[in-house]
């Protein structure tokens, strides 16, 4: 049972406008029916590679693993015309290893900070983590919002915390993770999007999920947030970027998400500065499909640096 909305949360939802659940779900189903073939497909696959935040967020991450992730981000495949990924995304303690591996490479370093994924530490600790990550060389900070406070109706507290993290970021780009699966309703997701966007700068991101819960980025959640970005842009002229994360594993899914961007926000958002995918397994499937398009033959997954022990 979803928790009862408090008066302040209800007021925010009313202000942001409610979401038509049936309409959104019907609309996103249609995105999968678009026929994208040949040149358009190759274009979209390469665009998706260039929009990737190649991610490793595991307890067993080591400096060596981060270094090989950085090499893969810089040169995902031996064929020359495949772009580098937008960024690598690592835990804050590993940022300095990523910086050493990447040097002056155009691949940016994103770091999850603010006690990812729960966010349940004192604000001072979270801000210190953000400052440390930026000092170590992070270009982008992925923060989690205080979902407990949001659902309890402490809207102003959530917004103040986002603003405080934004200040701690300095020049670094901020990505605000709403953790949609814990917000329970589309109305809440839209309300939380507006709450975050009102304190964000041009080019900062809102992001669906941590990838650490059972339900991750869905096409419908993505659509609710894209609609919110469009409405915010039309009202204020501020261009907020978007990052779905978690659960996007296949090239086909990625193409469907790009269709949603194209049809909601237009070509201006079809760039790595305005749209990102947070994923790890996705890159190999994108490369596999690009190789299929290049050679005309279906490829085996073990040719793309995964599942080397499998058949």
């Amino acid at each position: 049972m979803p928790p009862r909305s408090t008066a302040s949360l209800r007021a925010l939802i009313l202000e942001a406008g409610p979401v038509d659940q049936v309409g959104i779900e019907e609309r996103v189903q249609k995105y999968a029916t678009r026929s994208i073939k040949k040149n358009s497909k190759v274009f979209a696959l390469k665009l998706a590679v260039s929009m990737l935040d190649l991610t490793t967020l595991e307890g067993k991450d080591t400096p060596g693993k981060v270094a090989s992730l950085c090499r893969k981000a810089q040169r995902p495949h031996h064929t020359p015309d495949i772009p580098h990924t937008a960024a690598v995304c690592v835990y804050s303690a590993l940022v300095r290893h990523a910086r050493r591996a990447l040097g002056k490479s155009p691949v940016r370093i994103a770091s999850v900070a603010t006690a990812f994924p729960s966010g349940q530490t004192p604000l001072a600790t979270r801000l210190a983590e953000v400052r440390a990550a930026v000092a170590d060389g992070a270009d982008e900070i992925d923060m989690v919002i205080n979902r407990g406070a949001f659902l309890a109706g402490e809207i102003a507290l959530v917004q103040d915390e986002i603003a405080a993290v934004r200040e701690a970021c300095g020049q670094a780009t901020l990505k605000v993770i709403l953790e949609t699966s814990e917000l329970e309703t589309y109305d809440n997701i839209r309300a939380a999007s507006f709450l975050a966007m009102r304190v964000l700068r041009n080019g900062d991101f809102i992001k669906t999920s941590t990838g650490k819960t059972s339900s991750n980025a869905t096409l419908a959640n993505n659509q609710v947030m894209l609609d919110a970005i469009r409405d915010h842009f039309l009202a204020t002229g501020i261009e907020i970027a978007m990052k779905p994360a978690g659960g996007i594993r296949t090239a086909k899914q990625a193409l469907t998400f790009l269709v949603a961007v194209k049809e909601t926000l237009g070509d201006a958002w079809l760039t790595p500065a305005r749209y990102r995918f947070g994923a790890s397994a996705l890159l190999n499937d994108l490369l596999r499909q690009l190789e299929k398009e290049r050679t005309g033959h279906y490829q085996a997954p073990y040719s793309f640096s995964e599942a080397s022990g499998s058949y």
């Binding site: 005309g296 279906y298 490829q299 085996a300 040719s303």
Partner: peptide, 10 residues
């Protein structure tokens, strides 16, 4: 042709 060229078929 796909049976012949699919790289995952061993």
């Amino acid at each position: 042709p796909t049976f012949a060229t699919h790289a995952h078929l061993r």
